[in-house]
Design a protein around this nucleic acid. Sequence first.
DNA 1: CATCAACTTCAGAAATTTCTGAAACTTCTG
DNA 2: CAGAAGTTTCAGAAATTTCTGAAGTTGATG
Lengths: 186, 186
Amino acid sequence: MTLTPLQQEFVLHFGEMGSRWGINRTVGQIYALLFISREPLNADQITDALGVSRSNTSMGLKELQSWKLVRLKHFQGDRRDYFTTPEDLWEIVRTLIAERKKREIDPTLTKLRELEMQGPAGDDYAEARVAELRELIELMTGFYDDMEKLETERLVKLMTLGSKFAGLIDKAGAVMPSLKPRSERS
Amino acid sequence: MTLTPLQQEFVLHFGEMGSRWGINRTVGQIYALLFISREPLNADQITDALGVSRSNTSMGLKELQSWKLVRLKHFQGDRRDYFTTPEDLWEIVRTLIAERKKREIDPTLTKLRELEMQGPAGDDYAEARVAELRELIELMTGFYDDMEKLETERLVKLMTLGSKFAGLIDKAGAVMPSLKPRSERS
DNA sequence: CATCAACTTCAGAAATTTCTGAAACTTCTG
DNA sequence: CAGAAGTTTCAGAAATTTCTGAAGTTGATG
């Protein structure tokens, strides 16, 4: 299996970006390859197209499955596993955000709550900052949970409108007091 | 300089999370330490508090400066550099998102546009996916640019309201056609 | 202008992550 | 149930990243 120049370049780019995205090169390449392939691919095809070892492909696919970023498919009379990415990009974005939240944010939120539980620690400033950070994360993840629930169509509309609805915001709801900018606090 | 148990645990957690956030342990620890310290700290204080080498601290601070996550401060009659994080958490969030966008998204957007420039590559599906991905990223970064412009107070209001304003969305503006879910296309 | 304090750079050591080939496991087939 | 096909696991090799101590740079001071 030979890749077209477009495919080749796309795959290599995702490989290079991998480290910035918190995945390794092979994982990035596998994902990129599946993303631009119309048909599902099996592990041998991937191994061949990327020029990596079969075991590396296996581990990469395992990692992508743990991220829920690839989908398993089977064909009649063929017992090999075939892999694809979802057609719908929005589904991919949702998965990506959910998984990143789970890995990059949730553990910290848990830790911050733990630290607050431990009670007064003789350092007012540190305690206040921990609380402030926890509140911020809670506000943001709460907002994310709300957005998550919107159907894609509304989400796209919202994004297309951008800040045009900013005027509407002022018309309803109260501000969470502790998160106002310091300068505006009473 | 000895850390309180709260400070210690907070710092170690940020160190551990560092790798998931795309920074190294020391950088995570330095940031955490500055974050919960009321007063600015100099490199020697940081070195001492974290138990790392002076040169490691220097490189970590340099990295944090490249992220624009720390602020330099000087005191009368003391020529050492002191560092702090901004008081305002929202400012930190904005910086973080802007820098992550710059490092994790912009290079890919550039690459996708390049690939499209290169013209027909004899693989319709791959080309379509590249275009679709570019459109999605443009929509999302465009939305981000809009949100970026909102004052913090409105942003907080928006987040607090969550999806409550979803009903308002439908009342204005057209949907960007190519980004509707596949199932809804004409 | 020699010295000192503060900071940075850098080559190599240490640690960590990624990748490979071989072996092991699992499931299907005749 | 023996063998084949497909996949996973894993110990160690290779590559990469992080960290350190020593040397280097900068600029202020007496």
